[in-house]
């Protein structure tokens, strides 16, 4: 069976500065991959390029989804294929409530009309899972939300829109202990469906204990420099990235903050 996502020799630039320097990545159906690396390595850039963020220019390479080359696909077309990205800093959109927004996008994605009542019920269930109170659905999308509410909102959107490939860009940063647990459990529950695949970017081990990645990729200076399984995650969590730099003959970084 072909991979759900296949990225080959991907080079990405912003203002002619190459940020990603030839990335290869394959994610099979039902697999969970974690993308680790120091700040500024290009982790978000990779996820955002897969989603076709216009601020990044794909200068070389190919992206395939379910065997189809999607280089020329727009962001919304990629979303319709079943690709989803959570944002680190979701944008505020006044004038539309969370509920109306999600119902609109759900109809857009599935092409099927969903009754208001049925949708309300479904949304309510997902909101309870995330410990969001009912008033949340009536509030404008991300407007005036706390950091935690925004993060949970992204996960709520994932649950409702039900994509095949989820890319989680630091879904746990800035959350308190309880919220990390709730988000982790919701994501793990979502991924228990073995038709779903996931690429997660995180600096924390807590969420990884729940979602249990199959593979880890270490991204340093725009290149994936090391790949492995759970044992690699453990070692990075314990020791940071300097041992990898040493292996590669790179200069060590001394003040790197590890969580």
């Amino acid at each position: 069976m072909s991979n759900m996502l296949e990225v080959s020799n991907l080079k990405v630039a912003v203002d002619d500065v190459e940020i990603l320097q030839g990335i290869d990545l394959e994610i099979g159906r039902g697999e969970v991959h974690v993308l680790m690396g120091p700040n500024g390595a290009g982790k978000s850039t990779l996820a955002r390029t897969i989603m076709a963020d216009p601020q990044f220019e794909q200068v070389e390479g190919d992206i395939y989804f379910e065997g189809e080359n999607i280089n020329e696909f727009s962001t919304d077309e990629r979303a319709k294929l079943g690709i989803f990205l959570t944002f680190q800093n979701p944008l505020e959109v006044a004038g539309i409530s969370v509920e109306d927004f999600l119902r609109t996008t759900k109809i857009e994605l599935t092409g099927e009309d969903i009754s208001v009542i049925k949708f309300k019920r479904e949304l309510k269930g997902h909101m309870q899972d995330l410990d969001l109170d009912q008033a949340y659905a009536e509030r404008y999308l991300n407007v005036g939300f706390s950091g935690g509410e925004k993060k949970k909102g992204e996960i709520l959107q994932m649950s409702v829109l039900n994509p095949d490939l989820v890319m989680l860009d630091e879904p746990d940063s800035g959350l308190d202990v309880d919220a990390v647990r709730i988000v982790s459990e919701t994501v793990a529950d979502f991924l228990s469906d073995k038709n779903k695949s996931c690429l997660i970017i995180t600096h924390h081990s807590v969420i990884l204990e729940s979602v249990k990645p199959d593979f880890a990729h270490i991204l340093i200076d725009g290149k994936i420099v090391k790949r492995g399984g759970p044992e690699l995650i453990e070692r990075v969590n314990d020791e940071g990235y300097n041992w990898i730099r040493e292996e590669l003959g790179l200069e060590k970084v001394h003040d790197e903050v590890l969580d």
């Binding site: 963020d53 216009p54 962001t75 919304d76 979303a79 990205l85 979701p90 996008t105 857009e108 829109l161």
Partner: peptide, 12 residues
């Protein structure tokens, strides 16, 4: 542009 990208990433 980022707000447009955000909404498009949800399928709009």
């Amino acid at each position: 542009d980022q707000a447009i990208f955000y909404l498009m990433s949800r399928g709009l």
